[in-house]
Design a protein around this nucleic acid. Sequence first.
DNA 1: CAGCCCATGTAACGAGTTACATGATTAA
DNA 2: TTAATCATGTAACTCGTTACATGGGCTG
Lengths: 193, 193
Amino acid sequence: MALRHAVLAALLDGEYSGYQLAKIFDLSVSNFWHAVPQQLYSELSRLETEGLISGRQIIQHDRPNKRVYTVTQAGVDELERFAATPAKPGIIRENLLVMVQAVDHISADAVIAQLEERALASAAKIELFEHTLRHLRGDLDEEAFLQSAAPIGPYLTCLRGRRFEQENHEWFTSTARLLRARAGATAEGGEPA
Amino acid sequence: MALRHAVLAALLDGEYSGYQLAKIFDLSVSNFWHAVPQQLYSELSRLETEGLISGRQIIQHDRPNKRVYTVTQAGVDELERFAATPAKPGIIRENLLVMVQAVDHISADAVIAQLEERALASAAKIELFEHTLRHLRGDLDEEAFLQSAAPIGPYLTCLRGRRFEQENHEWFTSTARLLRARAGATAEGGEPA
DNA sequence: CAGCCCATGTAACGAGTTACATGATTAA
DNA sequence: TTAATCATGTAACTCGTTACATGGGCTG
C-alpha cells in the first residue's frame, strides 16, 4: 500500500479523472512517485470503495464521459496518519547508471550514446519544471511566494524535481565527455600509469 | 527482468556471496538500484541456472559456508546487449516527498520532524560516499584517477550517488526550515498577502 | 545468556507491468 | 485515412516484499 498516498496527495490539488491523473503523474508526480495509467485506474476504484476519495460522473458530448475524484475527509485523515509514520527511505531505479557501473567491461559506445540522449531529455524536462514553477508562483518572486499563504507543497516538490534533473543533466554530460575522451585515448594506443 | 543487470554489474567488481551482495546493494548499488536480500538470493539462483554467473562453494569453519559467484562470458554478453537497448527512464519512489506534496492539507509538524531526521541520515551517507570515493581513487586526485586505466564505472556511479545525497540534504534542510518558519508565522496569527 | 552477525532458503502475498479490448472525436 | 487524444476497463503475468524457518559462532 504505497501508491495510494501518492494518488491522494496528487488529488489534493484538484478534481481529476484517471486519465488526467496519468498525465499529472507523468510530468510532476514522477518527481516522487512513478505509476502507469493502469495502476491509477485500479487504485482510484479501490480508494473510492474505501471512501478515501469520492467520484462523480462528468457527461461530455464531444468526447467520452469521465469520472473525476476528490479527496474525502477520510482521505485527508489517511494522509495525516501516513505523515505520522516514519517514511521508508526512498528508492531509485536507473538502468543508465547500471550501464555506467559496468562500463569498464563492455563497449562504451552504446553507453555514451545513451548518456547523450538522456542529457537532451533532461534539458527538456528542466525547461518544463521552470515553466511549472513560474506558473505556480504567479507574479511573486520565489521568496515572497514561499512566505505567502498559498499552497506550497507542489512547489517544493517541483523544486526538488528540477534540481534532480539539473544534476542528471550535469552528470550525463560530464560522464559522456569523460568516456569519449577515454575511448579516444585508448584508440590512440596510450595507456597512462 | 531488470534486477538481473544490476546484479551482474555489481558482480563485475569481484566474487561475492548473496549475503555480501546484499550489503553492497545497501550502500552503493542503491544509488541506481534497490533490492532486498531475498531478491538477491533468488536472482542469483536464476542467473546461475541460466549460465550468466557461475558459483562455487566456500567452506568456512568459523562461520556458515557460502556460495560466491562470478560473471561468466555469457553474463558479460548479456550486459553488452542490455547496454545496446534503450534504457527506460529511471524511477523514484520517495514517501517523504509525498508528504511534502500534501503538507498544505495536513499538520506540518510530523513532516518537519521527518525532514530533519532524513537530513541527518543523508549527511551520514555523504560521509560514507566520500570515504568510498577516496578509497577507490587511492593516491591519485580525481582528475588523474578518471584518466587512468583503472575501472571507473563504480567511481562514476558513486559520484552521482554522492551528489544526489548532497542535494537531498540541502533540500531536506531548507524545506524543514521553511516549514518551521511558516508554522511560526501562522501561530503568531499573521497571514500575509 | 541475550542479542547480533553470518548465511541461505521456502512460501504467501501484495504491487507493478503488459497485453488486449473498445470506441468516439479531432487534427494532419 | 492515418494517427493522436480522450477515456476506461479486464486479465494474465512478472516482480517485489514480508514472514517464517534454521542454525552456528561471536560479543558484551
